[in-house]
Design a protein around this nucleic acid. Structure first.
Length: 411
RNA sequence: GCGCCUGUCGUCAAGUGGUCAAGACCUCGGAUUGUGGUUCCGAUAUGCAUGGGUUCGAAUCCCAUCAGGCGCCCCA
């Protein structure tokens, strides 16, 4: 038996209604907020992710689906199934000179991403993200708009009690100062840290801040280290930017908490970073992650452009929402004349009614049983009805049956 | 990639070395040849994730593989 690949999943039945619901809410909420949809290819040049996502990240180092593709002459090019969508959107932004349009340029997307990880609840190898990217505005109003969109979208799905966590990583300059300060103050304790943190110290020292290892936690509790962490290390401009964002959020009544230990893993983030979490998801608790990436467009060869966005895990959203029941049919046609039944079904479907009928001309009791499970009304189309030209319409909720002589009265 | 746990019908499960692998729901058929949602009756795993091994005998013990879950890691 051939089975679905590890970490992949078939979606059908009630779950697919939930997906349609999520997709249509995304469409409504984001498009109302002026985001246009963008669909970028599922695979891109490997180099795009290596440069865009960053080679200090696990995503690039060990989780990419990378293929060598090309002719027998080995003039192969390396392509990768996208592990996230920001790099692809930025590539498209540059390639189509979208920066020449008047800012802001705002996009939303929905689609599959691929990461080779150990599957777990809330974590698959092919998973879907829905997200937005907003280019061209450096002011905190853009940060507020993006966070607002995330919150509004979640609210539209009935998820209004999730916690928003915020932090500012600072800009290029103060981010580095902070990084150096952290390294300096942690240096005496390297030997006591867990193996992961020893690695992090070299590659991405800020990540040590959210290590869950007890020994590392103890080190972070030390006064001189705590002082560095809790101090407002970011520069004046970054601080002003962050304070402005907070004013917006207060004005919008969006609840948030500031988490100085929130450090996101992708290399491109600067200034504002945020996550939206749920306790109901176990260890994969982040439903939404995002932040500002003011340097990325330029780094990938475009003009210097401020930008901010977020991505949400669709499977994680699904886990938080109850499955939707299949919508009921308007009519189920009960008939032993399958030709008349399919003709009537076709006519009603053209009037935008949901209609089914029995394909096997089974006895009426069976057909009605099926009708009662799936439809609001049964149209009984037996020999009498066909001969005399009327419809017997039965309300399947209360059992009342009426005779209708005009097709138009069915609509 | 690491550690721990799990894997019996479409679903939920009983069974933990020795009769034909309980039961419930779903599905299908019948009681009821044109009237459902109640009730009653019947059908449906030579099979216990897959492949090996131990044994007179394995769903039950052992090994491997695959898949899922939890935690780590990472992230959405």
């Amino acid at each position: 038996m051939i089975k679905a690949q590890r970490g992949t999943k078939d979606i059908f039945g009630e779950e697919s209604f939930l997906w349609q619901h999520i997709l249509s809410n995304a469409q409504t909420v984001f498009q109302n907020a002026g985001f246009g949809e963008i669909k970028t290819p599922i695979f891109e040049a490997t180099e795009l992710f290596a440069r865009g996502v960053g080679d200090s990240t696990d995503i690039v180092n060990k989780e990419m689906y990378t293929f060598s593709i090309g002719g027998a002459d080995k003039s192969a090019s390396s392509i990768t199934l996208r592990p996230e969508n920001t790099a692809g959107v930025v590539r498209a932004y540059i390639e189509h000179n979208i920066s020449r349009q008047s800012p802001p340029q705002k996009f939303w997307y929905f689609g599959p991403m691929f990461r080779y990880e150990r599957p777990q609840a809330g974590r698959q190898r092919q998973f879907n993200q829905v997200g937005v990217e907003m280019f061209g505005v450096e002011k905190a109003s853009a940060d507020a708009e993006v966070i607002l969109s995330a919150v509004e979208f979640l609210k539209s799905l009935g998820l209004d009690n999730l916690s928003v966590e915020l932090n500012s990583l600072g800009c290029k300059k103060c981010k580095n100062d902070y990084r150096e300060n952290i390294k300096k103050v942690l240096a005496p304790y390297i030997a006591d840290m867990c193996d992961d943190c020893k690695m992090r110290y070299e590659k991405n020292p800020l990540r040590i801040l959210d290590c869950k290892n007890e020994d590392c936690q103890k080190i972070l509790e030390k006064d001189e280290i705590k002082e560095i962490i809790l101090k407002d290390y970011i520069c004046e401009d970054c601080k002003t930017h962050f304070d402005e964002l907070i004013e917006y959020l207060d004005e919008l009544n969006i609840k948030y908490s500031i988490n100085k230990l929130l450090v996101r893993g992708l290399d491109y983030y600067n200034r504002t970073v945020f996550e939206i979490k749920s306790e109901k998801l176990g260890s994969q608790s982040a439903v939404c992650g995002g932040g500002r990436y003011d340097g990325l467009v330029e780094m990938l060869g475009g003009p210097s452009t401020p930008a901010i966005g977020f991505a949400m895990g669709v499977e994680r959203l699904c886990a938080l929402i109850d499955n939707l029941e299949a919508p009921k049919l308007d009519y189920f046609i009960v008939s032993n004349n399958t030709k008349e039944a399919i003709k009537l079904a076709s006519k009603l479907r053209n009037e935008n009614k949901k209609v089914e009928f029995d394909y096997q001309s089974r006895k009426f009791a069976k057909q009605l049983e099926k009708a009662s499970k799936s439809a609001k009304y049964a149209i009984i189309l037996g020999e009498d009805e066909i001969e005399k030209g009327f419809y017997s319409v039965k309300n399947l909720e209360n059992g009342e049956q009426k005779t209708i002589s005009n097709f138009d009265d069915l609509i």
